[in-house]
Each structure stands twice: as C-alpha cells, then as structure tokens.
Simulated scan of single mutants.
Amino acid sequence: MPASAAKSTIALIGVPLELGAGAAGTVMGPAALRTAGLRAAIAGLGHHVVDEGDMDVPHAVPEFAPGELANCRNLSDVAAWTGEIHDRALSLLASGALPIFMGGDHSIAMGTISAVSRFCAEAGRRLVVLWLDAHADFNTPATSPSGNMHGMSVAFLCGEPSLTPVLGERAFPALAAGDIHLFGVRSVDAEERRTLVERGVDCVDMRMIDEFGMSALLRGILDGLDPETTHLHVSFDVDFLDPELAPGTGTTVPGGATYREAHLVMEMLHDSGLVRSLDIVELNPFLDDRGKSARVAVDLVGSLFGRSIVHRPSPRA
C-alpha cells in the first residue's frame, strides 16, 4: 500500500523562520500548529507521530559579496537556514518517516524541497511538487519588487542561476518545469509572468479553477503518477485559502480556496497515495483571529492523512 495511504510514521519538525518574508510573525507558526492540535489530529487517524521539536537558529552565517544577490533581504541568514533545513530534512527522509515541516515563511521550501530532490535522485524516484499558493514565488533577485526571499523559492528550486549560491556546496537536482505545479495562484508579478511562460512551469490560477473545477484540474496532475515510483511533495501556503477563511498570513489575496474546495484537494491527495512529505508555511499567529487559521490548517492536514466524512476505499490501495 502506498506510504500516504497506509498508517505511517509522521515526523513533525518546526522551522521558525520569518526572515524570508516581509511581515514578522511566522516564527510563531510551529507553536500555533501545535496549540491547534496538529499532533493529536494526525495520531487520532492511527498514524505514529513523533514531534522533533523546533530547529535552532543557525550560528554559522555565510557572507556574500555584493552582486546579483544584493536585492535579497536577509540573504546571509536565509542561506544559513536553508543549509540547516536541507541537512535536517535529508536526515528525516533517510529515517523512513514522512516529514511535515512546520514553517515559518515559504523560504523554508528552498531547504526542504532541495533535500527531497536530492533524496529522490539517490533513491531513483521521481519528485513531483504541488505548490498550493496564492503566489507564483518565481521572482529572482533581479525581478523581485520587495527582495523578500519567500517569493523566490520556486525559481531557486528550478535552478535559477543567480540563486544557486544560497545553498552553497550542497548540490541538488533542479526541478524540471513539468514536475512542479503551482495551484491556486492569483497574484503574479509582471516579470514573474514572463519567466513562468519562458520556463514552461505549470500554473493553475483561480480563473482556471473557476472554469474547470478543483477536482478536474487536480486529477489532471495526479493521474498517471505511479505511487511506487513517485514522491509527491505538497508545499501548502496558508494564503492558498481565502482570507475570510484564514486571515493569519502576511500576504493575503482575495478569492482563494474555500473550505470545501481545500478539503476536496486534501482528500484527493490522500486518495492518490502519492504524498510523502509536506510543508505548512506562512501561518502568522500575530495576524490571526483567535487561532482561526491554525485550526483550519490542522483540519486540512487531517483530511490529507485520512479523515473523511464517510469511508471511501482508496482507488490506489
């Protein structure tokens, strides 16, 4: 039975990083997810859950010469975190656990997914990434209006040359354009739009979702992927959701996924038997309404790991 359909060992790891974002507060994201009952929600579904605690702030901060990276805010600190996250993620993957990386802003994905890519290459598995986000996160140092590195994560993972120094000597296979799927996008900068077209990255925006529906578009991504040979990494940004549902994030964009749409996505992902690692990012308790966003995120993760209204045997089982 595929790993995500079976009862799994789940490893929670907190990544309290906020330096890649423009608004402070995501450093409290892991604590909010724990307070909202993430571990109990997953364990209640029969999984064995181990909480690895939070990562420590890195001490060895690399220095970078001015140049193309000059527009990257907090570059040295984010680079230090990226290296530490990569190493910790690689260790968790090697242990056989299914890791859940609790952010933290979306720059943590530069460390988590680079490690997953390296792990999959060594294991002979295909890596596919589902990026649930209001934003494309395909800016580069040359195109970013803000210099915030959480908006450069996908470009980094796809091998953007100007961002290669962020991970130093830790080489990883860059993602192919056909193996990353941006889903739920509704805010893209002008330069990002051109780059996405040039690189051929699959980008499902809310116009497409309104026209064709969540289930049809997600099924188009998942169908044909073999659970025996594919590692699906889900990178879930809280701003994928409509801000009325989840206000606790620093980059809200109206018109996001509804409660029912988001649960449909998570239940379909569970049924696929493909998911083997997960990011939960951009939860900012400082901007939330009495824990509303954290509770919704925990509910959605429950659906991802097997909770449903009625029993539905997995078509992949």
Rank of each mutant, 00 (worst) to 15 (best):
A134Q: 08
A297T: 06
S153I: 13
I85S: 08
L269P: 06
V116L: 08
F286W: 07
A32F: 04
S146H: 06
F101N: 04
A21M: 10
S146L: 13
S146G: 06
A89T: 11
D299R: 15
N284V: 01
G103Y: 07
P285Y: 02
G29R: 05
C203K: 13
R260K: 12
S4R: 07
G96A: 05
R312I: 15
G83H: 13
E18N: 00
E160L: 05
R126L: 09
I13Y: 05
L283A: 06
V27E: 07
L304T: 12
H263R: 15
F119S: 06
D137R: 09
P227G: 11
R34L: 00
F156V: 02
D205I: 04
L245H: 10
D239R: 04
A32T: 00
H86C: 04
G124F: 02
A142I: 13
D179R: 09
H233W: 01
G151M: 04
F212L: 15
F119M: 03
L196K: 00
L130N: 05
L222T: 05
E244M: 03
A190D: 12
G178I: 15
D239M: 01
V50Y: 05
Y259L: 15
D239Q: 03
R219V: 11
L90I: 00
P227N: 00
A24I: 09
M110Q: 04
C158H: 07
T143Q: 05
R290E: 05
T9D: 07
G14K: 01
V166K: 14
R126P: 13
V238C: 12
S153A: 14
A294I: 00
P247A: 10
I113T: 06
T230I: 05
M28A: 14
E84F: 10
N139K: 09
G184L: 02
L245G: 03
D205K: 10
E191F: 14
H231Q: 14
S8G: 15
E63D: 09
V310P: 07
T230S: 02
I180A: 04
L264Y: 08
G178N: 08
M208K: 12
L127A: 04
G14P: 07
V15A: 14
V301H: 11
I100R: 09
P99S: 02
N74V: 07
E52D: 15
R219L: 10
A123N: 13
S303P: 14
V50E: 15
A43C: 06
D56A: 13
H150N: 08
T26H: 08
E169W: 11
L17F: 11
A21D: 03
G53H: 07
A174P: 02
P243W: 00
L278F: 07
D288V: 00
G220N: 12
R207S: 13
G220R: 12
E261N: 08
L93N: 04
P285A: 00
A3P: 00
D189Y: 12
L19T: 11
P254D: 09
G250A: 09
A174D: 02
I108E: 02
P173S: 07
V27W: 04
V238G: 03
A174G: 11
L132Q: 06
A257C: 12
A155R: 10
V281W: 02
T82E: 02
T112W: 00
H106L: 05
I221V: 10
R126N: 06
V61K: 06
